[in-house]
Simulated scan of single mutants.
Amino acid sequence: MMLEQSEDDAPKRARRDDREGEMAVVGRSVTINRPRVTLFAFWRDFQNLPRFMEAIEKIEPTGPQRSRWTIRAPAGQMVTFEAEVTDVKDNERIAWRALPGSQIMTEGTVSFSDAPAGRGTIVTANIKYQPPGGDLGRLVAKLFMAEPNIQARHELKRFKMLMEAGEIATADNRKSKEDR
Rank of each mutant, 00 (worst) to 15 (best):
R93C: 11
Q47Y: 01
N91P: 01
V110P: 00
T170A: 07
S29V: 03
A75I: 14
F144H: 10
K128R: 15
E22G: 05
G166P: 03
I94P: 03
A41G: 07
R158I: 14
T106F: 05
P148N: 01
T121H: 00
K160V: 01
A41F: 00
R180G: 07
S29G: 04
F42H: 13
L156Q: 05
S6C: 02
K12S: 04
F159P: 06
R34T: 10
E60Q: 05
D9G: 02
R51F: 13
I94V: 13
G118K: 11
T62Q: 14
Q5E: 08
I168N: 03
D87T: 07
L99V: 13
A165I: 07
S111W: 08
P61E: 12
T31N: 12
A14N: 08
S102N: 10
R72V: 13
E155W: 12
R34C: 03
Q65M: 13
E107P: 12
Q47S: 12
P64C: 08
G101L: 06
R72N: 14
F112S: 08
F52A: 11
V26L: 09
E84D: 10
R72E: 11
A14S: 11
K142E: 14
G21F: 04
I71V: 15
D179A: 12
E54A: 15
F40V: 09
P116K: 06
I122M: 09
L162P: 02
N149Q: 15
N126C: 14
V25C: 06
K175Q: 10
T80S: 14
L143W: 02
L3T: 07
A55C: 01
F46K: 04
K58W: 03
G63V: 01
D90Y: 09
P35Y: 01
V85T: 14
K12P: 00
Q77G: 00
D45S: 09
R15F: 00
F42N: 01
E107T: 15
R174H: 06
R174S: 07
M145G: 10
A10G: 00
I32V: 08
R68P: 05
H154E: 15
P116E: 12
D9Y: 06
R72H: 11
D17K: 02
M105R: 14
A14M: 12
Q103D: 14
E22R: 14
R174M: 08
